[in-house]
């Protein structure tokens, strides 16, 4: 079963028929597993990884370190929720180390992110401090490498 998800994680467009052949399981079985996973949230969503710079339309991204005060009873979860609900927040993680939450924020320009931090994030009562790192270049995302050099075929067309 795990293998089905591994295949989908690599290629969300793999069809149930293809997957069924690859893992040697009946198609209806595979379809059932996928349907169930879509329903119960095992599969959250199918998305494409877009190379935006190629389109000349690049948003501004920032990785923000946030130090917060945990709350009795709910720890970091309540404050994390107050933060990740903002539509500007693309990803949010609780991390170990010198700060607590690592959030990835997306905006049209630097100004937009600056005002998000100044007006929405920093004023939150539980937020002690923030450190904002603007992303300069994207090399790899979700296991995929950006800016791949033009695919060159290194293999000979036929070998013994």
């Amino acid at each position: 079963m795990k293998e089905i998800f591994e295949i989908l994680e690599q290629n969300a467009r793999a069809t149930p028929e293809q997957i069924s052949t690859m893992v040697d399981q009946p198609v209806n079985e595979v379809e059932k597993i996928i349907k169930r996973a879509e329903k119960d949230g095992t599969i959250l969503k199918y998305k494409a990884i877009i190379n935006w710079p190629k389109l000349g339309k690049e948003d501004v991204w920032a990785l923000i370190e946030v130090r917060v005060t945990p709350q009795r009873g709910v720890g970091f979860d309540a404050i994390a929720e107050r933060i990740y609900q903002f539509s500007e927040v693309y990803s949010a993680y609780l991390v170990s180390g010198t700060y607590d939450l690592a959030i990835l924020v997306r905006g049209k320009n630097m100004q937009e992110i600056a005002s998000f931090v100044a007006e929405k994030l920093a004023p939150l009562e539980e937020v002690q401090s923030t450190v904002t790192h603007f992303l300069l270049k994207r090399y790899k995302e979700s296991g995929e490498i950006f800016h791949l050099p033009k695919e060159i075929n290194r293999r000979l067309p036929i070998t013994p």
């Binding site: 000979l156 067309p157 070998t159 013994p160």
Partner: peptide, 24 residues
């Protein structure tokens, strides 16, 4: 000569081939 060799030369003359002939 290797039976593959002959085929290799023919292949070189065709473009945009999908090769299922590579043994690596």
């Amino acid at each position: 000569p290797s039976g593959i060799r002959k085929f290799f030369d023919l292949l070189a003359s065709v473009e945009d081939v999908i090769s299922l002939g590579i043994g690596e």
